[in-house]
Simulated assay, not measured.
Amino acid sequence: MIRLEELTKVFETPNGPVVAADKVTMEVPAGEICVLLGPSGCGKTTALKMVNRLVPPTSGKIFIDDKDTSKLNDVQLRRSIGYVIQQIGLFPNMTIEENICVVPRLLGWDSARAKKRAAELLDLVGLDAKLFLRRYPKELSGGQQQRVGVIRALAADPPVMLMDEPFGAIDPINREVIQDEFLKMQSEIKKTIMFVSHDIDEAVKMGDKIAIFRAGKIEQYDSPDKVLAHPANAFVADFVGADRTLKRLRLVTVEAVSDRAWPAISRHAKVRDALVAMREHNAHVAIVLDSDQRPTGYLTEEMAEGAGGVAQDVARPVPTTVPARADLRAVVSEMFANDVMWLTCVDDGGRFAGVVTQAAVTAVLGETYRKPGLVAL
């Protein structure tokens, strides 16, 4: 857990004092990611750097796991916090293994333990330890270097991580890949993380909570869904964008809105059985499955009316499928691309996992707006 209480930073300049952080108070629950977001110069990076005292606070308190960090010296504090920056900062004259082992060795780990940890972490981010441990940073791509920078911060297993625009310098394709790998890793290691970003889409994807800063103050601190659905004021609404409802599509998975009870029949089933199943479910489509439960086609009421034989003789191919783990952006995109109002969902093995409809997507987006006492701006 990270807790900031009335945290303030005033810089003295030739033109007088400048308040970079103004009585910032917030708490990041253990195991969650909080993204600090806001325009340039709003104080988000200053707030982050005060946590590991790269910027000394003017006043206020910082607690990590309920311990007042002012009672720790700078070295103790920083060795207990993982720190990742956009510039990566790998030591060019050290191998990848040596880079990862820097902090563990400073903490007195023996060589075998440190090397084992380095190999485990490389595997965790999809880099083969046998291939990468002996390489030097210049022999890695930018995306690979960034992964090493992230796991180096994790090497000594710190309870807290600070990340200052860690993926900002990576191209969009690799950024998505690394973000996904980091979230997968976070689901296992459950670190408490403060993460500075300038990208609202990244914040929505990565954060359990978002803190919107302006002029050194927090304008809103809430879940991504609440920030997008109910911005606290006009500034927050403008900052997150007029398309904030569409951004919320990223927050919901297909699995969360798919109807697993949707009528699905064997390709060898009779057409009239498909019609009965549709009517019982009040559905206009039945999905046709092969022997491995993979969707191969569909029947509509109109196609089934008066038709004889078995389903596979009448069915049309499904236009496309969407993974159950995908977010609703993928659903909406595929619906538009295929000019359909429904899509078949599949699990990781390609097996039928329900149907998602346009009505279901609309309903889930409207849920937050319908909660009592909440009015969208």
Score class of each variant (00 low, 15 high):
V148H: 03
E219D: 06
P17A: 10
N15Y: 14
E32N: 11
L54R: 00
I81G: 02
V257H: 03
L107N: 09
E97C: 07
D222M: 04
S197C: 12
L124G: 00
R329G: 13
A153F: 15
F213Q: 01
R147C: 01
P137F: 04
V254D: 03
T13V: 12
K247Q: 05
Q87P: 02
G373E: 02
R135A: 00
V252H: 15
P137C: 04
A229P: 06
V125E: 00
F336A: 15
V276C: 01
S333Q: 13
D68S: 05
D128E: 05
A256G: 05
I62L: 08
G108L: 09
V236C: 10
G82F: 08
V252C: 05
T192W: 04
H198N: 06
E219M: 11
T58W: 03
D164G: 05
I85H: 05
D327L: 07
D290A: 08
K270R: 13
S223Q: 13
A376Y: 07
M303Y: 05
L48Q: 01
K184D: 14
A274G: 13
D313C: 03
S59N: 02
D123C: 00
R250A: 14
R248C: 10
P319Y: 11
E97A: 14
Y136L: 01
T69M: 09
E302A: 15
Q312Y: 14
D347C: 09
A237L: 08
F91E: 00
M1W: 02
L106M: 14
T245V: 13
I100L: 14
I200G: 03
R272C: 10
R53D: 03
S187R: 15
D110C: 04
A47D: 06
Y369S: 13
G82N: 07
Q220N: 09
I265Q: 01
D68I: 05
K23E: 13
I265C: 01
A315L: 04
L54T: 02
I100P: 00
V331P: 01
V331L: 05
I178P: 00
P17S: 11
V55K: 03
D347Q: 12
T8M: 02
V355H: 04
G349V: 09
D128I: 00
W262K: 00
E334G: 00
L4T: 05
L140Y: 01
S80H: 12
G126W: 02
S333H: 12
I218S: 04
D313T: 12
S258A: 15
A237W: 02
Y298H: 09
D222C: 05
A169N: 06
T25Q: 06
G60D: 08
G168W: 06
M303K: 07
M94Q: 07
V35A: 08
D171H: 04
D225E: 14
E97M: 14
K23W: 04
L183H: 03
Q87S: 14
P158Y: 12
T13R: 11
I33P: 00
S70H: 12
W109R: 03
R316G: 08
S187I: 04
S40Y: 10
P17F: 10
L133H: 08
K247F: 03
Y221M: 11
L133G: 06
K67I: 11
A261M: 14
V254G: 01
K49P: 00
C345P: 01
R3Y: 03
L289P: 02
D313I: 04
T368W: 11
N338E: 10
G350D: 11
A21Q: 09
G241Q: 07
A277M: 07
T13A: 12
P172M: 09
K49Q: 14
V364M: 06
